[in-house]
Computed example of a mutant assay.
Amino acid sequence: MDSADGFGPAMLADVEPRFIPEGASGMTVLVEWPPSDPGTPPHRHTGPCFGCVIEGELRWELEGEPERVIQAGETFWEPGGGVIRYQNGNALSDAPAKYIEFMMCAPGQPMLTMVDAEEFEKRAHL
């Protein structure tokens, strides 16, 4: 929903999460990766995540989807739960990448869980 004069809110993403954990809390983080940083190793979140790249380019890959590059000004989301995030690193070798991410976190559970090598191997077909 862009305003006619170019000021005011602009819709960047409109998604319908599959679920939001009961009693979830929200967390907003600013993530910054230096040039060529691979980002966080494969992991999952307990609830859906929404974000926007504000600087640089982000290499992004979710389980069951092809790898893609998200540029500054573009958004991303993931459903959370059992879906593995394989990549979220800097796609550029000569500039930093920065993004803001809002996560819905299930109560009493860590916001992020790393995927161990055994599980990674079992789910490689996905």
Rank of each mutant, 00 (worst) to 15 (best):
F76M: 05
I20R: 03
P48T: 11
Y99Q: 02
P17Q: 05
C52A: 13
E65L: 08
M104F: 15
S3Y: 13
M104I: 06
T113Y: 11
G80I: 01
G23M: 15
F76G: 00
L92D: 06
M11D: 12
P79D: 12
G89E: 08
I84Y: 00
R68W: 03
D37L: 04
C52Y: 05
L126S: 00
M27K: 15
P35K: 06
C49F: 07
E22Y: 06
L112V: 15
C105M: 15
G47P: 07
L62V: 12
E61T: 04
P48D: 09
P48K: 06
L12K: 11
P110Y: 11
Y99F: 15
G64E: 04
R85H: 14
P110F: 10
G73S: 12
E101Q: 08
C49M: 09
P41M: 05
T113L: 15
I70Y: 02
P66Q: 07
G82I: 01
A72R: 08
P17K: 01
L58A: 07
F19S: 13
G81T: 02
P42A: 12
L126Y: 01
R18Q: 05
W77S: 03
I20A: 02
D116C: 10
C105D: 06
L126Q: 04
G82L: 08
D94Y: 08
E74M: 05
G56R: 04
S93L: 04
R123C: 11
S36H: 08
R59I: 03
P35A: 14
A95Q: 14
G6D: 11
Q87G: 01
T28H: 11
V53S: 03
A124N: 11
V29M: 15
P96D: 13
A91R: 00
E63V: 00
P41F: 02
A124K: 13
G64R: 01
Q71A: 15
A91L: 03
V15S: 09
Q87V: 00
H45E: 00
R123W: 06
P38I: 00
W77D: 01
E78Y: 03
A10W: 13
V15W: 10
A13H: 00
Y99R: 01
C49Y: 04
T40M: 10
A95F: 00
M114C: 06
G81I: 01
P9S: 09
F120L: 15
D116G: 01
E61M: 12
M27P: 09
P96K: 09
L126R: 03
G6P: 14
G6Y: 14
P110W: 13
A97N: 12
W60E: 04
D37K: 07
C49E: 13
R18A: 00
T75K: 05
D5W: 11
G89W: 07
Q71D: 12
A72D: 14
M1S: 13
A97S: 15
C52G: 11
G82T: 08
G8L: 14
S93T: 09
T75L: 04
A13K: 02
P35F: 09
A4Q: 14
T75I: 05
V15G: 03
G89M: 11
W77A: 02
H125C: 10
M27V: 13
I84G: 02
G108T: 09
